[in-house]
C-alpha cells in the first residue's frame, strides 16, 4: 500500500481534472497510434510536424480572439491540410518542399499572433498552454471536439486502411492495383490534420508530433505486422500519457514547489524513452540499427 501511495500521490484517484485527463489522454493516444504508424510508413512524419506548427498558429489566434484554443487548432489544421493538398495537386513536386512552404508562412504568422497576445494580455500563460499544453487544463467542454476530431480520423484511416498500406509499401504497386492514390492521400491528410489538432489539445501544439510519431516509431521494431504495430503504438502512447499524468501529479511536491512540472514534459520524455528502448532492442536482435523512421 505504501508503494501505491508513493507512486500515486494522495487524491490522485478522486481528482476530477486528473480523471478527465486520464480518459482524454488515452483517447487521443489511441487515435494517434494508427495515424502515426501510417505517417511513419508513408514518410509523412514531416507533414505531421508541419501540422503541429500550423496548429500553434491557430491556437495563438484563438487565444488572441478569446475563443477556445481547440477551435483554433481544428480550423488551422483543416486550412493547412487544404492548402497542402492544393499546392501538392498543382505542382506534383516534392511533398516536403510543399510542406516546407506552408510551414514557413505558418510560423511567421504564429510569431506575430503570440507577440500580440502577450502584449495585449501582459501574460505569457496562455501562450505556454497553447504551445506546450496541459492536459489537466482541458475542460469537459472540449469533449464534443475530441469526438468530432477523433471519430472522423479513425473512420478515414479504417476506410482507407488497405489502400494506404499498399501505397506506403509502393505507390506503383498501389497504382497497378487500381488504388486512387490522390483520393486516398487526401483522406489520410485529413486524418493526420485531425489527429495533430487532438494531440495539440493534449500536450500542446509544438509537442504534438512527439505523441503522433514517437510511439509509432518505437512500435515499428516491435511487430512485423501492420495491425500489431498500431496496437503497440497505442499501448506505448497510452502508457506514456498515463504515466506522464501520474508523474506530473506527483511533481506538485517536487522542488520548485507548489506548481508542479509540465505534464507534457513527462509524456514526451516517456515516449522518447520507449523509442530508445525499442531501438536498442532492435539493434540487439540484429535488425536495422538506424531506422530512418524518426
Amino acid at each position: 500500500m505504501s508503494i501505491v501511495h508513493a507512486v500515486f500521490a494522495p487524491g490522485f484517484f478522486s481528482n476530477g481534472p486528473v480523471q478527465a485527463a486520464l480518459v482524454m489522454g488515452a483517447v487521443v493516444a489511441a487515435v494517434c497510434a494508427p495515424v502515426g504508424v501510417l505517417a511513419v510508413l508513408r514518410g509523412q512524419s514531416f507533414a505531421g510536424h508541419a501540422f503541429a506548427d500550423i496548429t500553434s498558429t491557430g491556437g495563438s489566434a484563438a487565444v488572441l480572439l478569446g475563443i477556445s484554443p481547440v477551435l483554433g487548432f481544428a480550423a488551422s489544421a483543416a486550412a493547412g491540410a487544404a492548402s497542402m493538398e492544393g499546392l501538392g495537386a498543382r505542382q506534383h513536386g516534392d511533398r516536403d518542399l510543399v510542406t516546407g512552404t506552408v510551414l514557413g508562412g505558418a510560423l511567421g504568422l504564429s510569431a506575430l499572433l503570440l507577440y500580440l497576445s502577450t502584449t495585449r494580455q501582459g501574460t505569457s500563460g496562455a501562450t505556454v498552454s497553447v504551445l506546450f499544453g496541459s492536459v489537466f487544463a482541458v475542460s469537459s467542454a472540449n469533449w464534443p471536439w475530441v469526438a468530432a476530431l477523433g471519430l472522423p480520423a479513425l473512420a478515414l484511416v479504417a476506410a482507407a486502411y488497405r489502400p494506404l498500406l499498399l501505397s506506403s509499401v509502393s505507390p506503383e504497386l498501389a497504382a497497378a492495383r487500381g488504388v486512387r492514390s490522390h483520393l486516398v492521400g487526401a483522406m489520410y491528410l485529413a486524418a493526420l490534420a485531425a489527429s495533430v489538432a487532438l494531440a495539440a489539445l493534449t500536450i500542446g501544439a509544438v509537442l504534438s508530433t512527439a505523441l503522433l510519431v514517437g510511439p509509432a516509431a518505437a512500435a515499428l521494431g516491435l511487430s512485423s505486422r501492420p495491425g500489431r504495430a498500431m496496437a503497440w503504438a497505442g499501448a506505448i502512447g497510452v502508457t506514456s500519457v498515463w504515466a506522464g499524468i501520474v508523474l506530473a501529479y506527483d511533481s506538485y511536491s517536487w522542488p520548485p514547489a507548489g506548481r508542479g512540472w509540465p505534464v507534457s514534459f513527462f509524456v514526451v520524455a516517456l515516449v522518447m524513452a520507449f523509442y530508445a528502448a525499442s531501438r536498442a532492442g532492435a539493434h540487439r536482435h540484429g535488425r536495422s540499427p538506424a531506422g530512418k523512421a524518426a
Binding site: 482507407a160 486502411y161 506506403s168 509499401v169 509502393s170 498501389a174 515499428l220 511487430s223 505486422r225 501492420p226
Partner: peptide, 26 residues
Amino acid sequence: VVLDADLPVRARDLVQLGQDGHRWGL
C-alpha cells in the same frame, strides 16, 4: 521496389494486399 527494412509488413501481408489492397474498409 525499395523497402525500408523496418516496414511492419510481412511477405504474406504483401501477397494479401495483392488480393484486396484496393478495397475499402478494414
